[in-house]
Nucleic acid binder design. Structure first.
Lengths: 212, 212
DNA sequence: CCAAAAGTGTTTTCCGTACACCCATGC
DNA sequence: GCATGGGTGTACGGAAAACACTTTTGG
């Protein structure tokens, strides 16, 4: 009897100034203390994208975010081989909107990519893969929309880029770039957030994945 | 009973001045005349890469060429659902080295991407995907090594680039680029191929996929 | 009036592109 | 000697990178 394929989703967010991934931990049993990517088996008649989306909604409550297939792995040869293939996805969510569930088993938690816990087999490789893909897409697409709230300042957007690329950006050059790419546009509102000049609020021109 | 996953391989070559894909055609039976990507079901205990490689060797006789996973599709809902998922790969082979088999059923043949025959369901999409990926990798990797013989002239290499990108390249700029990327290096031999000055022969510095 | 972040232009550097002539060979 | 493809350098333009000061607000 051949086991069904599984999907695993690398759910990334920017939180507390760091790029973080959502992992889940089986509370009890033999695997206690081992963290893993959220995922699940493909249901009967269910499509891959639908399965990935289902896992994402189950873990974070959010839908309509950036979700893209990454790579397909031979499933880890576990004792009880529950899956044959592992189809990985990655998703980008705004940490503010994501609401983690609290379960008895498979407690979820955010982990900075810098400080991932000991993880099940291929999971680190999958996360590394997602990070490379995200960094590549950052340069020429609008993917970050999925990490940002509806309105934001350009400085906030710049911080997110800096956290993802792990390098400092020049304020003027950054602004010129995102404005000339026309991926964001100013709104009519401004943000008064402290003892300084209020910042213009911007929004994404499009909150859909870009075409090619 | 859940059917096993399938692999399909987009095998590309440059032949007769055009980028061509290998397709196979069921000689008789109900699907007669329909062309499709070569592929096969995943064998018991077989890894994905191994399956793709097996298909490639079966069709062309060559191994050790560039072979990369592309994308995983939900399997086409055929009448007799023989597969659940379709994991696609693409491979680049030197047409000179490839030796197509001659079988009673599933006769293989090369088709210019410009003039693909009527094909089974998702197959055109898969080929389009492979082409986009190839063009992207062309710019910053050495993937073409897999389309070239051991030794070649820079003009021959340029022709291959031109066929893949479907645009004319400037001879001097092209040479500067490949030489400065250091993906090729001159050999000690030259090619006397006609009534003109012999050309320097080059080889790839590395005939392995590049790391990142 | 001071601290804090917002906002704004110019100069320099580097890379991609365009472009034309001489060279070595076979016949 | 002529036809054929091989081989080479330079000038220009646009994009990316470096860089510092003024503005607006809250307290």
């Amino acid at each position: 009897m051949r086991p069904p394929p599984a999907v695993a989703v690398v759910i990334l967010t920017v939180r507390e100034g760091a790029l973080q991934a959502l992992l889940i931990n089986r509370g009890g049993g033999p695997d206690a203390g081992r963290w893993a990517l959220p995922g699940g088996l493909l249901l009967d008649g269910e499509g891959l994208d639908a399965a990935a989306s289902r896992v994402l909604v189950r873990e974070t409550g959010v839908a309509d975010v950036y979700l893209e297939q990454l790579y397909t792995f031979d499933a880890a040869p576990t004792a009880k081989a529950t899956s044959s293939l592992l189809v990985s996805y990655f998703a980008l969510v705004d940490a503010v909107r994501a609401r983690l569930v609290s379960r008895e088993t498979w407690q979820p938690g955010w982990f900075p990519l810098r400080a991932l816990p000991e993880m099940a087999f291929e999971n680190d490789a999958v996360i590394g893969y997602a990070l490379r893909r995200l960094r590549a897409k950052l340069e020429y697409t609008n993917v970050v929309y999925s990490l940002m709230p509806e309105e934001f300042t350009l400085t906030e957007l710049q911080r997110v880029y800096e956290v993802i690329t792990d390098e400092q950006l020049d304020k003027r050059n950054f602004r010129r770039r995102v404005l000339s790419l026309a991926i964001v546009s100013p709104t009519s509102r401004r943000a008064a957030r402290g003892a300084h000049r209020p910042a213009q609020l911007y929004q994404f021109s499009s909150r859909k994945p870009m075409e090619f």
